[in-house]
Write a protein that binds this DNA or RNA. Structure first.
Length: 446
DNA sequence: AGTCCCACTTAGAATTGTGACA
DNA sequence: TGTCACAATTCTAAGTGGGACT
């Protein structure tokens, strides 16, 4: 199919979908996120999921409840002769439609507005404002939990240690999970076998977290925490809960007493955004060129991804891609050494040697050869940089923190201060998602 | 105090779009 | 003008956490 034809097919499809793409909310036309129901297929859980491969049945209009304004016309049911399961008018929730998850009928699948909508933007901003508020409380919170590391009250002691781990290691809260889900843990659900005391005060963390991603870290803990963990492990087997007096609900109830609205997840947002802000500020004004500044940003972004344990599987073609880069470097180096020979000869007024195919090359002035040498060197540098960064980032996912954890105003303000075009950091989707942050002051600090 | 229900955010993988280069 | 590599987007699973109910 040629270009023109492809474009026409695309436009045709867009036209057909146009009527599902928008919702009027409080009189404003807003973009809808996922307006397609999930097609039938085999369930693909992550990790060792007990329901792996189960058949996921087709969803029909009769399965779907829609949520519209009281006076809004009911959207036409797309399958003739069928009808919606229910039509509601609930303005206390944000979903536009939902159906029961066919794999786990106790759960729901929702249609929401898109990330770029006013509603999502507002709630995103509130999330970051709450995390910023934690700055005013964090010192007191740290003092409090440190004082409780040795508490005689076991619940208090476990709350103190858990809060410390969430603060220092950016662990997730760790809600209870059912037996029909993959066996993963967060802070409150850590097992004895997941946290091993090594040489004091080193604690070894080894567990599967969200999406069955492995978390492994040897961590130099506060000696009082090390001691407390040893105590929590006493008389238990490996599969017993480390924090037997604790769950997320108790932990969050406690956190709310320390700061209004504080929950465990706020610490991850706080940790990520503070780290980015600090690292960008420390990076200095950076007299360098824009690409160098972008590399600095990436470096900070990578630090955050490591803290949050955002991983990806190494791409299948990674080693082939590395090989290809190496070949290009080798070729460029061979070219460079040939140019250097030519340069030496040219300086003596001699013609260049024949090339590898035995063909005579053109006579060039020493200046022209110098120029070619410079460009070959630049090329080699670039390839070597690319290779290092590719290897360095092969199992780290930078995107997740950018989308969910880093206050976009930190990035926008840094770009303004350093004259880096924001488009170099945020793609089209992120620019739309973060439109609420674009007018922030260049002096903004998290 | 524990359980269930509900609604929302966060997550990596899969798929699709693109632009550079042969 | 096709191919390939990377970026962007889509997909949907898997978390968090509030609140009602028992």
């Amino acid at each position: 199919m040629v270009g023109q034809e492809k474009k026409e097919v695309k436009e045709e499809k867009l036209k057909l979908e146009e009527k599902y793409m928008w919702a009027i909310v409080d009189g404003v036309k807003e973009k809808v996120g996922n307006f397609r129901v999930e097609p039938p297929g085999l369930f693909r859980g992550r990790g060792e999921h007990p329901k792996m491969g189960k058949l996921k049945k087709r969803i029909y209009p009769r399965d779907i409840t829609i949520n519209i304004g009281k006076d809004a016309p009911i959207p036409e049911c797309p399958i003739p002769g069928q009808s919606w399961k229910e039509v509601r008018h609930d303005n206390t929730v944000t979903w536009l439609a939902y159906w029961n998850d066919p794999i786990n009928p106790k759960e729901f699948k929702y249609v929401f507005l898109a990330a770029s909508s006013t509603l999502k933007g507002q709630s995103d901003k509130e999330k970051y404002e709450k995390a910023r508020k934690l700055k005013d409380y964090i010192e007191g919170i740290r003092t409090t939990y440190t004082n409780n590391f040795g508490s005689k009250d076991m619940t208090r002691q476990q709350i103190a240690v858990a809060t410390y781990l969430i603060d220092r290691l950016a662990l997730r809260a760790g809600n209870e999970k059912d037996d029909d889900e993959a066996d993963t843990v967060g802070c409150c659900t850590l097992k004895v076998e997941n946290v091993k005391p090594l040489d004091p005060p080193i604690l070894e963390f080894d567990f599967l977290g969200k999406d069955s991603i492995k978390y492994y870290k040897q961590f130099e803990a506060d000696p009082a925490v090390y001691k407390a963990v040893k105590k929590f492990r006493e008389g238990k087997s490996g599969s017993d809960d480390l924090f037997d007096k604790l769950d997320t609900s108790k932990l969050n109830t406690h956190l709310k007493e320390l700061m209004p609205g504080l929950t465990a997840k706020v610490f991850r947002t706080f940790n990520a955004s503070v780290t980015l802000d600090d690292m960008l500020a420390k990076g200095g004004a950076g007299s360098g060129e824009v690409p160098e500044k972008i590399a600095n940003y990436q470096h900070a972004n990578k630090e955050v991804a490591i803290i949050c344990n955002h991983q990806r599987t190494v791409s299948k073609s990674h080693s082939a891609q590395m090989d290809r880069l190496q070949t290009r470097i080798d070729e460029a180096k061979a070219e460079l050494s040939e140019l250097e020979t030519d340069l030496a000869r040219a300086k003596k007024g001699k013609p260049p040697l024949k090339d590898s195919n035995g063909k005579q090359k053109r006579n060039l002035s020493p200046e022209a050869i110098e120029k070619k040498i410079q460009s070959a060197k630049t090329k080699i540098d670039k390839y070597e940089r690319d290779m290092r960064s590719k290897e360095d980032l092969k199992e780290i996912a930078l995107g997740t923190s950018k989308i969910n954890y880093l206050d976009p105003r930190i990035t926008v303000a840094w770009c303004k201060r350093n004259e880096v075009p924001i488009e170099k950091i945020f793609n089209k989707s992120l620019l739309a998602k973060f439109s609420w942050a674009m007018d922030c002051d260049p002096s903004f600090r998290f």
